[in-house]
Structure formats: structure tokens, C-alpha cells
Simulated scan of single mutants.
Amino acid sequence: MQLLYSNILPLGIEEDQKTIIDAFHEQLQLADRVEIAVGYTSYASLEELDNLIDAYAIHQVCLNIGMYYIEGMPENSYHTAIKLNQKWMDNGKGEIRMIKPFKYHGKVYCFYKDGKPFSAIIGSANLGVIKLEASNRRQYELSALTTDSKEVLSIAQHIESLKEPNCSDNINNLTSVPLIREKNTALNGVELVTSVPKANIDFYSRCQAYVSFFLKLKVPKADERHLDDGKHFTKSNINVCYAAPRSKRRARDWYETQLTVGADVYHMEGYPEKNKPFFVITDDGYWFKAHTTSDNNKQFSAVGDELIMGRWLKGRLAAAGIVNPVNNTLEDTDRLGMITQEMLEEYGCDRLVFKKTGQTALDTDGTPLDVWMLSFTNEKNE
């Protein structure tokens, strides 16, 4: 057995010591299969594991995740795991499983060659050890590498027992994994937006709806992203950022969004009057002023900043790991940043819920404005 360390000052590694990550890379280089069981992951460590599997030409991989089925899984990590699991299964490389009947807190890594386990790492290190981030950069771990055939076989058998149907299942088969919402940081520091405490959200959530509306998000299918015939919402609604730029030198901001409400909604009794401002509180704790504009008050937008609605809506999808923000929409020729039906299906929600709470709040000039609640909550969180 060889002890493995973190390299964190003032407890840096000495000349005859080895770090956990170095040992992990060395064993991967010798292996053609790896079996892993950990309590926790992160989306960054999941992506790093996938990169290493490709880099070291690993033929088979199975990752067992132990704590999230009961505790709940951060949505960014969940969606990343779903994508990787599908990729590995499609390529015949392996799968990601979740342990169901109990909270598994072990951290074991077993390496195989030609069908036989030859080494294992066991200790305190979750998968995040392979990709350090701000949250775990100063977190010290201690593990051990063993090449003893009996110890390695015992660890291999332990992981195999975790893969039995009575202990775990493929993550794609689990529809009841509770998701933990990631914080949307796209509205941080925006002048016209205020963060409110959870007590405020709870209060307005409990308010009986005077009226409420479903605002359907109109987006194309993934295979329609390059169709510009006006029928597939590729340059309208929340994807208006892919419309022609306002100037030849300046691309539209990826967060630019138009919420276009259908006639079946804006003709309904109780829908906000045109150009009459109201306050919005979102289900994730943001507060800003909004209004309806355009013909038949079909445009629903924030007052004073056309990017606020997009920062809230697209920021939620980005925080969940569904899409990556695009710095320059003119350079996104593959339109990977375009919101599609498949993305909304992955998130679990394709519409907003817009509820009049019956409450009012004073504007800066003392005018009382109605307070509406706007929700974009995926089904697993609802």
C-alpha cells in the first residue's frame, strides 16, 4: 500500500510522496478499463473524466454515484452526467449508475487490464479530486494505492456488488432524482434587478392567483436550427439574438430575448395592459419591473434593459448545464447556443407560469404597482 496525498500548503508533498491525481493518471495509463464508486461528483470532474477516458484510450468505464439519489443532485452535474452516460452507452464504453437504497459515501477507483483488476485507489477523494475548482482547491484528501492482488480483488468485487440491480440503476432509468437548482449568476450586478430573500418568494408563492397564464416558449427543434424560413423560431422569440445584427460590426447579445405572447393569451381577461408597468418576482428570487408592449401588447419584457429577461431565462438554462452562453452570436455558425425544444425537454419545462398575486408594491415615485410572479421551474424541482 502506498499513501497518496493532496498538495496543499503548508502540507505540500515531499520528495518521496505522490499526489492522488498523479497516481490516478499513472494507473489510467496502464489500464484499459476503470470502475469507480464515489459519493459526489461535479460537472467539471465529469467532463474531465470523459476527457481522460478518451486521452488514455480506456475501453470500458463505469461510474457509480452514491449520495445524490437520496440527497438530491446539482442540476448542472445531473445534466452533464445524463449526456456522458448516453455518449458512453452509444459508444459501447460504459455507463453512469446511481446507488438507490442508501447513501453510499465510499471513494474507490479500480483499474483493469485485459479483464483483470491490477490496482485500486481507496480513500477520502471524491471524483472532484481529478479536476480542482474553487470549492475544493483547499480541501485536503488522503488516499492509498494498492496493487496487492487480494486487496484489489476485494475492491473490484465490492464495486461489482454496487452495480447489482438491488443497489443501483443506470441514471437514464431514474426519473425521480431530486435536483438542486444551481444559482443563476447572469443577473448579478444588473442595475435594475434586485435579489430578494426566500421568505419573499415563499410569500408570493402562497398568494392565491387572481389570474395566471402559461407563456409557451417558442423554439425550433435541434435539426431546424439552420432553417430560416420564418416557421421554426430560429430568429425570433428567445432566439432573436440570431437575427440580423443591428450593425455590421456588432453581433446581437446572446442574452437578447423577446417573449412573444400568443393571441390566445394576450386576449384573455386579466392580462396586463399595454405599457402599464408592474413588478415581477421570479421563482428563484429576483425582482424587477416589467411591462407589455407592441401591437396587442404581445411583447413581454423588463423595463429599461432588454437583456434582463434573457439573463433570467437563458441564465437558468446555462446554470443547469443545458447550454453554454455564446460570446459572439455571429461566430456561432453551428448555432450551438440556440435554445431548442430538446434543451427545454432536458430542463423539464417549456413554458413560463405568470401569476398575478393580488399584492402591490410602491414604485420609486410612490405609485402602487401590481406584483406578478414568474416561474420557470422544471418538473423535477416543482
Rank of each mutant, 00 (worst) to 15 (best):
N7F: 06
L9A: 10
G12H: 10
I20E: 03
F24E: 04
Q27E: 15
L28N: 06
I36F: 07
E47V: 11
D50V: 04
I53E: 07
D54C: 10
I65S: 01
E71Y: 13
N76P: 01
Q86L: 07
N91M: 14
G94E: 06
I99Y: 04
P101L: 07
K103F: 08
Y109L: 02
K113G: 05
F118P: 04
F118V: 06
S119A: 15
A120M: 13
L127W: 04
G128P: 03
I130K: 01
L142N: 12
S143N: 06
L145Q: 06
L145C: 10
L145N: 05
Q157E: 15
S161Y: 11
L162E: 02
K163W: 03
D169A: 15
D169M: 15
I171H: 08
P178D: 07
L179V: 03
R181D: 00
R181Q: 08
N184E: 00
N188I: 08
N200M: 14
Y210N: 15
Y210K: 14
V211P: 00
L215V: 13
K221A: 10
A222H: 04
D228H: 14
G230I: 06
H232S: 01
H232L: 05
T234P: 12
Q258C: 11
G270M: 09
D283W: 06
D284A: 00
K289G: 00
Q299E: 08
S301E: 13
G315F: 01
A319C: 08
D334N: 09
M338P: 06
I339V: 15
L344V: 00
L344W: 01
G348Q: 12
L352D: 04
V353I: 13
V353L: 13
T360C: 09
T377I: 14
